[in-house]
Structure formats: C-alpha cells, structure tokens
Design a protein around this nucleic acid. Sequence first.
DNA 1: GTTCTAGAAC
DNA 2: GTTCTAGAAC
Length: 285
Amino acid sequence: MAHLTILRTYAERVDPNTLPPTVKLCHSDASVTIFDKYPKAHFHFILIPFIRAPLTAANLRDLRSLLQLPREQAKALLQTIRRDALAAKALVEAEMLEKYGCTWGIQLGFHSVPSLEHMHLHIISTDFRGEYMRSKKHLNSFHPSLGFFIHLDDVLSWFGPDIEPTWFAMKSDLDKKEHEKLLKEDMTCPGHCDKLFKTMPKVREHLRGVFDSTVKAAQKAMEAASNVPIDDLGDSEVTVGTKRKHDDPPETTQAEGADGSASDGPHPSKKQQTVSSSTDLPEDP
DNA sequence: GTTCTAGAAC
DNA sequence: GTTCTAGAAC
C-alpha cells in the first residue's frame, strides 16, 4: 500500500484560500471540498473536515472513529458536514446547469471501508461516468443501495431519538470484513433498473445510454418549460448545454475511448493553471 | 486472435 | 488509491 494519509494534509491546512481552483471547489470554517483526483462520475468531490479542537486526527480518522465520540459531538460534526456538503452540492448543480442545461442526482456519503485515512465525504453525481470508474470495486463502492456506500443522511438517521436499536446496532454493523465482501458482489446498474452486468465495459455502455437519454429528456423538458408563458417561469433562465466554460471533450456516441477508458468530460473549472508548488496537493483517492 | 479481470506491485 | 500484466474468458 501507499501514501494513505494525503487527505490529512488538507485537514491540517491552515489556510484553504491558498488552494488553487483546480484543487478546491469551496471551503468553510469547518471543511474544505476538493476535486477527487480520480473521478468516478462527471462530478466527484471530496469533503474533508478540518482537524479542530477538541477533535483530534485520531477522532477524525474515519466514520468509525467519529462514531466512538460522545453521541452529541459526533452528531454535531456530521451536521456541519451536511451543511457544507449541501453548499458544495448547490455549486455542483449550478455547474451542471451551465454545462448540461439540466441537473441530476448527487449522492453524499462515506465509504464504509475507505482506502485513505482521514474521514472524507464523497459528493458524487449519480451518472457514475467518470474516467476512473473502471472496476467492479469502483462501481460497487459507489452503488447507492449495495451498502458499501453509506449515505450521509442514513448516518444522521442513526441519531434519531425514536428508533431504539439504531445507535449501537448501526455502529456494530459497520463491520469491515462484511463490507469488503460487498465489493465482490455481481455488478448491477447503480440507477434504478437493477440490470445485471458481467463486465465493466457493459456497465459503462449502459451508463452512457442512461445518461444520454436522461440529459436529453431533461433538456427537452426545460426547453418546453421555457416556452411556457413567462409568469409561470418566474425569472429562471434556461441554458441548454451550449457554454463551454469547461474543457469537456465532445460526448462519444460510439464505443469508449481507444484505450477502453471512457472519455468523459473532466471536472468543471479545472483548466487554467498547473500548480506545482509544494503547498498544493491535488491528490486524493 | 482480442477483451477483460484480478492480484501483485507501487 | 492507481498501474501493470498474466492468464482467464471469449
């Protein structure tokens, strides 16, 4: 294994303002959200909570260590993470609108068995068409209902006052071995059709089709809406995927790129400069 | 013959 | 976490 603590350097960063826009999407007093270096979807970010007293690096190692904290302390941090994640999500949705003329799903959650140290929340669009979505393990780790990907709102629901067994039951349910087994499960569509797939190329082909038709339908709906009498629309302005603020290559309608990897558009806003200062760490999972 | 996966190496 | 590649699958 290799350098698994890269995310902690972000968590300890004194001033997130020094991070270039190629690395950082946004930050707050409590967290910074960066581009995932190996995106598994069109939009894929990682939210990293800062290490701030009274919390220590050990407390923030991962979701498990966080859940060892006094209940209210853990709950408070998760709520702060949620607040920041929703802000980031709003930025992503604006970006979607500008880039594609519509928005679609974004899921917020943790990997039950993360590969890198320091807890990080994935903010990932549910197209799952990133260039680095390449293996069964990748797909299963983000599959919304398989169980390896733990939705933030599910974690927060464990703190609910009503349901008796939740807190301790859910904590003990976070068994590493059991979760790792999930990564080996057969591949099914991470959307809602539950199709079963034998190989990743088939998955990718399917996801491409789903995405293309989803976006097409959404754009059509928005165009239709924009033709509706103005007072029904308010002041919303519809932009249908014409701007190219970001450097996305044109969508392939045939097979994937020559090397078998998808040639999805890279992340938004990731263009201008290449920063190589040692203080910038465009690394992560 | 080529495609694809999965495990070792990093 | 990714890359590389042997050999399984087709």
